[in-house]
Design a protein around this nucleic acid. Structure first.
Length: 582
RNA sequence: UGCCUCGUGGUGUAAUGGUAGCACGAGAGAUUCUGGAUCUCUUUGUCAAGGUUCGAGUCCUUGCGAGGCAGCCA
């Protein structure tokens, strides 16, 4: 497999090239990355790309990747999201890079920077939080003011915007250091209402880069924070908190997505202006993942969840990590996919086929083959004795003979797939038809002798005869028969609820124009009661199953003893569907 | 509009001044007790125009196109 975990296929891209050069030149003695989600939603497959990049770099260069909640906006962040994010990350890196995971130590005290540098220990409690650094970040703000590099501004948000647009300096820009220090302290003490004042960097109101036009560093928000509670009423903004959090944790390579590119000069300016001991972290940007037939923004995903167009954040139709996990996608598939798509600065649109290929590629090698009929049609073998049962041998995985064999029961009455019989088939259809022959996998060749319909004209039962010498291994078993179909013995079948998932949207780019919700695929979920071979009664949630000729399936958490629920993770490639369309 | 970044087959990528390659998709065939898998073959590309060079996808200039930013969001 081309899982990045198998070292001989370590990926290469411009960011890894930079890291390799930095290591070679001795710019850094260690490699330390970070994955900094904001806990305001669930992680999705786009985050998978970032996680695999940051952990991949740490893994390949013998470094650490810290997980840090980027929680500087108390109004949007919740503890529920912290928990889901951590669960998703652990699941994704398990068996691959957990030894590179940097978590916060339990022990308190000591020098914050060295403690926080992410050495592995048994004392690890959980993720880092940017909000854990509010105290040192505030101290840095004071230092910036003392150096004359920041000032307290009394303008409104609207005024600030307007002045930045036209490049005009704030009238409060030249307050004395003493006055700024006093006002900042009083901001922190809660003397002013929300929005009354801000702390701003003093850079250059004429700068062509807007982010250098005296950007806001702190705002006043009398709001409870999910992690720090009521300890603060001023909160640092992303630009101020992020570079300092990176610095505090000893991050070397701070990798983020393209939209932060224009922020990089500010990132560098802040660290430089604080005159910090070297080495400093550096920021690099790559293009986020876009996938066809889905939406990726947290806002849109949340809308689908809130409007109940899907069943929660872990709905298997969603591109969330939890949704894909529930659907049956494995972490190794996601990692493999992340490796295949590469890392560039070009904002590309990846076809979902690449993801589906990664699934089929892995499941073909690992999934146990089973017989299950999704849309059953009754078949009676008229020349097969009533009451007789044979145990036929079936291979568990032709791609992995080590997976062994199993017995499947055969008897006079069977179910076959509705789609495997047609009264008046199109050309090149080589399944069952009136008077035609087909092979039952692992069993006999049968001929359809009679079609029995119900009052509505629907096929109710097929009466067939079997070539009793044609059993697999038998005298006439080598006869050339074009079609082989799957089946289940009616008397031995067990029922299962099977959820057949399809793409959530009908168009490749649902959020390109118009309302993305109008493109929702009305057939994205079909629930059927399937007839399954007996051995599926012992299905295990950690295993993947190929229902032969149909697709790959995984047990849903809704399963209970005696009540099986399967999700279709992905169909098999279906060249007949393509042919039939012609 | 300003600033930043990016343009390699249908899609995702590689080539670090020296034969434009890989994967996905698409098409054709072989094989098959899964119309799966496997195997073989085919198709299509350096945004444009100049320049530097023995030689340019790569370096320079200009143009065109696309994306991002212009929150007291991240």
């Amino acid at each position: 497999m081309s899982d990045p975990a198998s070292e001989n296929s370590a990926p290469s891209d411009f960011i890894r090239d930079i890291v390799a050069e930095d290591v070679r030149s001795g710019k850094y003695t260690n490699v330390h990355t970070r994955f900094p989600p904001e806990p305001n939603g669930y992680l999705h497959i786009g985050h998978t790309k970032a996680i695999c990049l940051n952990f991949g770099i740490a893994h390949e260069f013998g470094g650490i990747c810290n997980v840090r909640m980027d929680d500087t906006n108390p109004e949007k962040e919740e503890t529920e999201y912290v928990d889901s994010i951590m669960a998703d990350i652990h699941w994704l890196i398990d068996g691959w890079a957990e030894e590179n995971l940097g978590l916060k130590q339990k022990s308190e005290g000591g020098d914050q920077r060295s403690e926080v540098r992410g050495q592995r220990s048994e004392n690890q409690a959980g993720p880092f939080f940017a909000s854990d650094y509010f105290e040192p970040i505030y101290a840095f703000a004071v230092r910036l003011v003392e150096k004359g590099n920041a000032f307290v501004c009394d303008m409104s948000a609207e005024q600030t915007d307007e002045y930045r647009r036209i490049g005009k300096e704030s009238p409060f820009r030249n307050r004395t250091v003493a006055e700024n220090l006093d006002l900042l302290a009083r901001m922190k003490a809660g003397e002013f209402p929300d929005g009354a004042r801000t702390l701003r960097a003093k850079i250059d109101m004429q700068a062509p880069n807007m982010w250098l036009r005296d950007p806001v560093l702190y705002r006043i928000r009398h709001a409870a924070h999910h992690h720090t509670g009521d300890a603060w009423c001023i909160y640092p903004l992303y630009d101020f908190a992020h570079c300092l959090s990176d610095y505090i944790e000893g991050i070397t390579h701070s990798v983020c997505t393209l939209e932060f590119e224009v922020h990089r000069p500010l990132y560098d300016w802040l660290l430089e202006s604080l005159d910090l001991p070297r080495p400093l972290p550096h920021q690099y940007e790559f293009a986020r993942l876009n996938l066809t037939y889905t939406v990726m923004s947290k806002r849109k995903l949340k809308q689908l969840v809130d409007d109940e167009l899907v069943n929660g954040w872990d709905d298997p139709r969603l591109p969330t990590i939890s949704g894909m996990r529930r659907r049956g996608v494995t972490a190794s598939v996601l990692r493999d996919f992340a490796y295949r798509i590469g890392i560039t600065k070009y904002p590309s649109m990846t076809e979902v086929d690449a993801l589906e290929y990664a699934m089929r590629d892995e499941f073909n090698k690992t999934a146990l083959r089973r017989l299950a009929v999704l849309h059953p049609v009754k078949v009676v073998i008229t020349n097969y004795p009533e009451g007789k049962t044979e145990e036929l041998e079936a291979v568990n995985n032709p791609e992995d003979l080590g997976a062994g064999t199993r017995k499947v029961p055969f008897s006079r009455e069977l179910y076959i797939e509705g789609a495997d019989f047609m009264e008046t088939p199109p050309p090149k259809y080589f399944r069952l038809r009136p008077g035609g022959e087909v092979r039952l996998k692992y069993a006999y060749i049968i001929r359809c002798e009679e079609v029995i319909k119900d009052s509505s004209g629907k096929v109710a039962e097929l009466r067939c005869t079997a070539d009793l010498e044609s059993k697999s291994g038998g005298a006439t078993s080598n006869r050339k028969i074009k079609g082989t179909i799957h089946w289940v013995s009616a008397a031995h079948a067990i029922d299962a609820e099977v959820r057949l998932y399809d793409r959530l949207f009908t168009v490749p780019e649902p959020d390109s124009d118009g309302d993305f919700k109008s493109f929702i695929n009305p057939h994205s979920l079909e629930v059927v009661t399937a007839k399954c071979e007996l051995s599926l009664g012992e299905a295990k949630p950690e295993l993947r199953y190929q229902f032969e000729r149909l697709g790959y399936f995984a047990l849903d958490p809704d399963s209970r003893p005696g009540r099986l629920v399967f999700n279709r993770t992905i169909t098999l490639r279906d060249t007949w569907a393509k042919e039939a369309k012609k």
